[in-house]
Amino acid sequence: MNIFRVSADILHLLSILVLLLKIHATKSCAGISLKTQELYLAVFVTRYLDLFWNFHSLYNSVFKVVYIATSSMIIWYMKRHRGVKQTYDKDHDTFRYLFLIVPCAVLALIVNGRFSLFEILWTFSIYLEAVAILPQLVLLQRTKNVDNLTGNYVFLLGLYRAFYILNWIYRYATEPHYSAWIVWLSGLVQTGLYLDFFYYYLQAWKQSKKLQLPS
């Protein structure tokens, strides 16, 4: 465990909490992609299947449970909460998630560390996490006007990925046998997807004005 890894996990948790808090406080989920949230839940569930029999550390187990619980709560708010579900941007959130799930599943069947059910599901979750933000980015692009909290959410998620890259570099330098190229490549793709968004986010922040994405 190193400082980059811990920072990354905390940033990840913060991003989810920012979103939950926004929904809870404003009773609105405008601008948030339900597709992306459902994909993240799928990522967590397929990756953390081993929660019950592969105990690594209390740290890992607590984070796994918290990630699954908090993202389930976001989905519950968006689909079931009487006030919140009416604010969901259904007409703009039309990304077909099978376009992401099917290629990730096929790739996980072909490119994996070991051909076993749990290893393939784990690899699938790594690939899916890399692209799960796409429906959210498309929704932001369509609605143009990004409110502060939604902007912060995507920014924190991007920062979390950047810190994971630092963690890998650190581990590669300090642990003799550490190598995980499937995770590294997926992580690079995932972080790359945020770069365009980061540019506009930082520009808006520098000029301290509302974040607006170009058409």
Binding site: D9, H12, S57, N60, E175, H177, Y178, S179, V183
Partner: peptide, 10 residues
């Protein structure tokens, strides 16, 4: 070691 190592990450 090797391929399984990233399993200790979240």
């Amino acid at each position: 070691t090797g391929k399984g190592e990233a399993h200790d990450e979240l």
